[in-house]
Design a binder for these strands. Structure first.
Length: 463
RNA sequence: GGCGAGUUGGCGGAGAGGUUACGUACCGGAUUGCAAAUCCGUGUAGACCGGUUCGAUUCCGGUACUCGCCUCCA
């Protein structure tokens, strides 16, 4: 069996991956807070961990991998949208408006991520369905002295967990020294973070031993991963920006709630994405959504290819140039594998590249090599292991019948060959190319293929 | 201030202590009525300074620069 090696953020080393239970390999990845469309940066962890999911399924068997990715549907931004809709005269109650917002956002998320060829995880829990588990976990933490209640808030006592900061490599004292930490009157220590906070009547809330309130963000993932994967599981993933404080807090909560159980064995963090060389951030407003990119005519498969062309552990720059190059390659490959029967197994080179800490760029190089040596069956199967060249993602390569145009062009050309006047042929050729059609004329005849930027509308009147 | 990542040819980007990465772009050739596509081919690298070595882009140390996190953020 192939040995998968993964870079473990917790140990800062590339390690052989040995599942706790090869019959049930378990992975948890922090999912989106569903307050709005996913932006292009959100797509990176989705594609990265989808690729890992596919690799794990290939190695351990499809039914032996459990992948959980949550939806955080408790959030001030969700509330804000719902409150705004209410303020603008919507007669429904707040709860209904919140549900509407989270439901529509989850729908968008599914549609957008499906477009990138990402498989749906085994479970996609919504935080609001696990409030009971969160409350229970918080109660346990209070009972064991790791948390305390003050003024309707429950806080985690960071100083009670000696390894706090180990994942991100910081000491509690350093954090306080340099940083802006939220000093609130109900905190024993500035580093303590919220497990539960009170809700007023205008906000969603759930009953609890500490009054009506809602959970803090970090406890959600601890409760859901425990419920669905158990107290110990194999891989925990997410963006590097979640390493601190989110993952650090998760570790503290889960280890204290379930001492000696282990929690997540391997921590994986994808680096951030930039756009045209600049940091993308909501506060700067220079971000765009996956849907924006799709609507601009960039196929989801192209987005996926671009994501896979950079190793997940390196910062990646999203550029129009990369998307254009990816499209050229995919068009070529789609042409090569058309009608080809997939090979029974993927290429060893591709599997070993992916197994080497998800070296997707190296795997793509292997695909290029396969294309170069004419192994189209191997190319197809291996690309599909990475979620590329799949049937579902193929719609963008248009199979529009251009033969009437080809016939017309061929006729014009024959005529021109006799008359030695090529003006008419050249005019039609130029028009076809302006419409994004690739014109191939050879002794074998005339062949037309839709190319990058193909616009059927520009073909009007060319017949 | 603390923690971390990166720097390969025009662009993207991989592996390996010693032989062409690869893709894309450009250039040359074949082909073509001309092109496109295709095929063939040339050129363009390893931030900087040291060290180890017969030999380093690849290992070690330092310098510079870039970037990220430390605050809701994937």
């Amino acid at each position: 069996m192939v040995t998968i090696r993964l870079h473990n953020t917790a140990t800062r080393a590339k390690e052989d991956f040995v599942p706790i239970d090869p019959m049930n390999v378990r992975m948890y990845v922090c999912g989106p807070t569903v307050y709005d469309r996913a932006h292009i940066g959100n797509a990176r962890p989705v594609v990265v961990f989808d690729t890992l999911f596919r690799l794990l399924r290939h190695v351990y068997g499809k039914s032996h991998v459990t992948y959980v990715r949550n939806f955080t549907d408790v959030d001030d931004k969700i509330n804000a949208t719902a409150l705004a809709r209410k303020a603008s005269g919507d007669p429904r109650d707040l709860e209904a408006l919140i549900h509407e917002r989270t439901d529509e956002t989850i729908g968008w998320y599914h549609a957008d991520m499906d477009a990138l060829g990402a498989l749906r995880p085994t479970h996609e829990p919504r935080a609001t369905d696990y409030i009971g588990q969160m409350v229970a976990m918080i109660q346990g933490l209070i009972a064991s002295g790791h948390a305390y209640e003050k003024d309707g808030h429950v806080l985690f006592r960071v100083r009670s967990y000696k390894d706090y900061g180990a994942l991100s490599g910081r000491s509690v004292d350093d954090m306080i020294a340099g940083a802006r930490v939220d000093v609130a009157p109900f905190k024993e220590d500035p580093m303590d973070f919220v497990l539960w906070k009170p809700s007023d009547a205008d906000l969603p809330g759930w009953p609890s031993p500490w009054g009506r309130g809602r959970p803090g963000w970090h406890i959600e993932c601890s409760a859901m991963s425990h419920e669905l994967l158990g107290a110990a599981f194999d891989i925990h993933g997410g963006g590097l920006d979640l390493q601190f404080p989110h993952h650090e807090n998760e570790i503290a909560q889960s280890h204290c709630a379930h001492p000696d159980e282990g929690f997540a064995k391997v921590w994986m963090h994808n680096e951030m994405l930039q756009v045209e060389g600049k940091k993308m951030s909501k506060s700067l407003g220079n971000f765009f959504t996956v849907r924006d990119v799709l609507d601009q005519g960039v196929p989801g498969e192209v987005i996926r290819f671009v994501m896979l062309s950079t190793h997940y552990g390196k910062p990646m720059d999203w550029t129009a140039e990369k998307a254009a190059q990816a499209e050229v390659t995919l068009r070529k490959w789609r042409g090569l594998v058309a009608g080809v029967e997939p090979a029974p197994t993927p290429l060893p080179g591709v599997v070993s590249a992916l197994s080497d800490d998800l070296n997707t760029a190296g795997a793509l190089a292997e695909l290029h090599a396969a294309a170069g040596r004419g192994d189209f069956a191997g190319l197809l199967t291996s690309a599909r292991l990475m979620g590329l060249l799949t049937a579902e993602l193929g719609d963008w390569v248009r199979t529009l019948d251009l033969s009437p145009y080809a016939d017309r062009l061929a006729a014009l050309r024959s005529e021109a060959m006799v008359k030695k006047d090529f003006a008419g042929v050249d005019a039609m050729k130029a028009a076809l190319m302006a419409a994004g059609v690739e014109v191939r004329i050879s002794k074998a005849g005339v062949e037309l293929l839709p190319g990058p930027g193909f616009d059927a509308g520009k073909l009007e009147g060319l017949k």
